[in-house]
Design a protein around this nucleic acid. Structure first.
Lengths: 237, 237
DNA sequence: ACATAAGGATCGTTGAACAATTCGACAAGA
DNA sequence: TCTTGTCGAATTGTTCAACGATCCTTATGT
């Protein structure tokens, strides 16, 4: 071991700041949380459909973990709004009502609305720009699933303008809930396509530093998205 | 049995809609949730101090529940931000950093700011008015603890103007976290007194239907509260 | 003084067990 | 035919005991 390693904790932070960024992953390793990660993916991907009951025994068996551990994972996802825990009846993939969708969009108007009224830094703009470009690329490739994920990244990037970790986290959970609903859209292109150009337009308003117009534009944006979603959704209920 | 009972599922919903209202009480009874309720009270009351470790064995023993059940309760409160779960080390009462306090107030500005920009209904105003009156009554009685709880009710009532259950719930959790910090104020009067009259003033702005002024007033209100809190808080850290 | 090793305490996870509850089926009665 | 009561299988809620893994403290040696 050479000297540079011995003095590392005192002076040289710059090479370590990179590592420090990954530190959040270090603590992240309990079986229950890893199980929750798997189930979260399955649910948001639509592998488990809304309303479906998740059998404790079957899933614990399939994943090779004990029922107690699986229950901790269930409890986690229940708090995220993805699973519905009914006493003595089991856990079910959450079914969102039209009223739930409306509420999610109410929250989005508040959180994203506050975000676009802030003056973004160059670095923040770069992330947003990247998400817009990704969506446009995916749209050009007819990859509408890719457009959907890029779109989600776009809105998450918007929320970071608030500079609030808690709002970032709230948005994360909100979008996970929304993904439960997106699966009812049988025609993903019709749902995603209109918003690709609107993302670009919103970005331009941010770059031009016109917050009021950006906020008004976003409001209309969210109104339309909500209507599109509710109309495709309500009949099934 | 008369005819009205035989046709109950078709036509006469009105007598049943009352019962349906009580359905929420049915599900609410799992041991883990009841344990979580108890611990939540203890933590927000300050019985368990921030940083204190909560031993699984000791508490499970004291409450007469198994470790597994207690763990489910811990997980619940961890998600609410009241407990800090460190892998293999146990759960601790959360210690909020000054940065956490700043973030909580960032969220408050967004959520409460959006709330006061809405036009409140008469019923909503009545609830807010009640909270303001309660705070004034408690202040007149030198009951500064009472002022604190009335103040919390005031801000919760503000958030209901958003008409969003999810924002209400977010505010509930946010205030629970903030209560962790309030305990560092050794002089509750100095902290709560200035805001009693400001609550009244904010109410008047809402009643006068002047949303922009209300929003600006709230902004200054929250800025001052945050500063007061951070100044009393930072030294201890 | 410092690094290292051993030990105890506590957590993480498992598997089994039993009580409590739900749900469907089937029989009895109006 | 429709409602009601009852039974039993299946599933969840909760507890308990056990063992390995991890952390913290203390003792040990250099």
């Amino acid at each position: 071991m050479d000297d540079s390693l011995l003095t590392v904790d005192d002076a040289a932070d710059s090479p370590l700041s990179d590592l420090e960024h990954d530190r959040s992953r270090l603590g992240r390793s309990s079986t229950a949380e890893r199980v929750a990660d798997i189930l979260r993916d399955r649910v948001t991907e639509g592998f488990f459909e809304p309303g479906q009951r998740l059998s404790e025994e079957a899933i614990a068996d399939a994943l090779g973990v004990s029922r107690n551990t699986l229950r901790e994972a269930f409890r986690l996802l229940g708090h995220e709004g993805l699973l519905d825990h009914r006493l003595n009846r089991g856990v079910f993939v959450r079914i969102l009502s039209a009223e739930d969708v409306a509420d999610l969009y109410r929250v989005r108007r508040v959180i994203e609305g506050a975000a676009v009224r802030r003056r973004p830094s160059g670095q923040e703009l770069a992330v947003i720009r990247e998400a817009v470009a990704d969506a446009e690329r995916a749209a050009a490739d007819d990859d509408w699933r890719g457009v959907g994920t890029a779109n989600i990244r776009f809105h998450q990037a918007l929320v970071t303008l608030n500079q609030s970790p808690r709002l970032d986290e709230a948005m994360r959970q909100l979008l996970a809930e929304l993904r439960l609903v997106f699966h009812v859209m049988k025609n993903p292109r019709a749902f995603h396509e209109p918003f690709v150009t609107r993302n670009r337009k919103l970005l331009e308003l941010l770059e031009a530093d016109r917050p009021d117009e950006a906020a008004a534009f976003l409001e209309a944006y969210l109104d339309d998205a909500e209507q599109l979603l509710v109309r495709a959704y309500e009949p099934n209920r």
